[in-house]
């Protein structure tokens, strides 16, 4: 399950970032899911109703091609599962956060990442998710990269939309 391993690695990175910036960004940031990391015990990744299961097994993010906001087949597959999970766990509301890689101008990337987040929002609704459960659709542009190298391997991970379960959703 290489996808799961990747997700775990991302969670670990986010955890470090959150520690050094505890007061920044509140729960709106991509770091909002860090308390739900691996080995969370009760409600851990083994529990299909847990946020950890959502972020790790279902997959809380989809990736985009360069300068694109259309959903790839893989992205659609992940979002179909996200919608199913959310429909089975109706207590959660979500925020959808789009991002871009650093190879673009700042304002354009803000708009592009909003397009990406909106593409995810539209798809989830098409899969039966109530629009009222989406509390925020926002583009962060290139302001919050996950990966920091200046190579396509990193850019590909940064061109993403993350579905964040809102805290206090249970």
């Amino acid at each position: 399950m290489p996808h799961i391993l990747k997700s775990l690695a991302l969670v670990a990175i986010l955890g470090l970032a959150a520690c050094s910036n505890a007061d920044r960004f509140g729960d709106a940031g991509a770091g909002g899911n860090t308390p739900l990391g691996p080995g969370a015990g009760l409600g851990g990744a083994g529990d299909p109703a847990s946020p950890a299961y959502f972020s790790q097994t279902v997959g809380d993010r989809v990736l985009f091609l360069v300068d694109q906001s259309t959903l790839t087949n893989e992205a659609q597959s992940i979002l179909t599962q996200q919608a199913a999970w959310l429909n089975n766990n109706p207590a959660y509301t979500i925020a959808i956060e789009g991002h871009a890689d650093e190879r673009g101008t700042r304002e354009y990337n803000v708009a592009l990442s909003e397009q990406r987040a909106n593409a995810v929002s539209t798809y989830l609704v098409s899969q039966g998710l109530l629009p009222s459960r989406i509390t925020r659709v926002v583009g962060f542009g290139k302001e919050r990269p996950l990966e920091i190298c200046s190579e396509e391997a990193c850019y590909a991970q940064n061109r993403r939309s993350v579905t964040v379960l809102n805290a206090g959703g249970v």
Binding site: I13, N21, R24, E143, P145, E147, I148
Partner: peptide, 9 residues
């Protein structure tokens, strides 16, 4: 200031 993935502005 700060690293690329946790920039303060």
């Amino acid at each position: 200031t700060g690293p690329k993935n946790a920039r303060s502005k």
